[in-house]
Amino acid sequence: MFLQFIANGIVIGSIYAIVSLGFALIYNTTKIFHLAYAVLYMFCPYMILTFFHGLGLNLFISFTVAIIITVFLSVIMEFLVYRPLAKKESSLNIMLISSIGIMIVVTNIISLFYGSETKILNSEISKTFTIGNIILTYAQISQVSISMILIVVFLLFLKFSRFGIMTRAMRDDDVLCQVLGMDIYKMRYVLFALSGLFSAIIGGLVAYDVGMDPYVGMPILVNAVVALIIGGIGRFEAPIIGGFIIGILQALSVWAFSARWQDAVTFLLLIIFLLFRPTGILAERKRLV
């Protein structure tokens, strides 16, 4: 049983890792506390639902179209809300509140059109796959493998491509980037698109496994943010490590206590980290408090 819980933890951890990475991509570079990111996670499945069940396209095409629309939504958020605020040099708290505003608006638009009850994409009983005494569904295996691929490709890009270098430069000092002639607003569009892509892919895959409702994004995002804090803000490897730690820890707390207390365990961990090591596991030491 223990191994099964570890395996479940890795599956959940891969979701947290990807969502956390997408969140970190924006938080580390622009310092926007992008709570509306939760919305993208649940927006993509609803788009898949529209194209797959509504228009009867095949699954792969509807997945692709839905991901493109979600990426577009992410860029629109930047265009309509964050960019004007950034040009006005508004404070970060204002960005945070605006982000809550976007989240409320989009969640309720979805709930208005699709209803707030749980919807499923895949009505068949999922096929399972057994290794030793660990049982996983094919959807879970594809979640883990696709997130691994995304993580590896992203980290390689970050290390070696021009885009990666620019991202790391923006993380270190975005004003200096501007002084050196980099168009940071163009760069921000790219970052928002990329983080939207991460969220859309994993959101779609998870919804294909377990279904979705309009409020499914927020708990995932909250866990992902905790993962980011635990991993450490700044380094892009940190949210990935944090995500897997949270995932496995939650699965183990289900094993040791019961599923009811897994959130409490996560937030207790958050408080402990905020108190004793606010820089997280990986980050270099600098004053945050």
């Binding site: 506390f33 970060l92 708290n93 945070l96 909250v222 943010v225 905790v226 804090i229 009811r260 207390w261 959130d263 409490a264 937030f267 207790l268 958050l270 408080i271 905020l274 108190l275 606010p278 945050l288 408090v289």
Partner: peptide, 28 residues
């Protein structure tokens, strides 16, 4: 006492964490 040692986003996050912990306790 613990949350006020933190600033800005971190303070918001700490209060969010406590909100969720207290909700979980009330619920469970």
């Amino acid at each position: 006492y613990p949350s006020l040692r933190l600033k800005g986003d971190y303070f918001v996050l700490a209060t969010l964490g406590f909100q969720l912990i207290i909700y979980t306790i009330l619920y469970n």
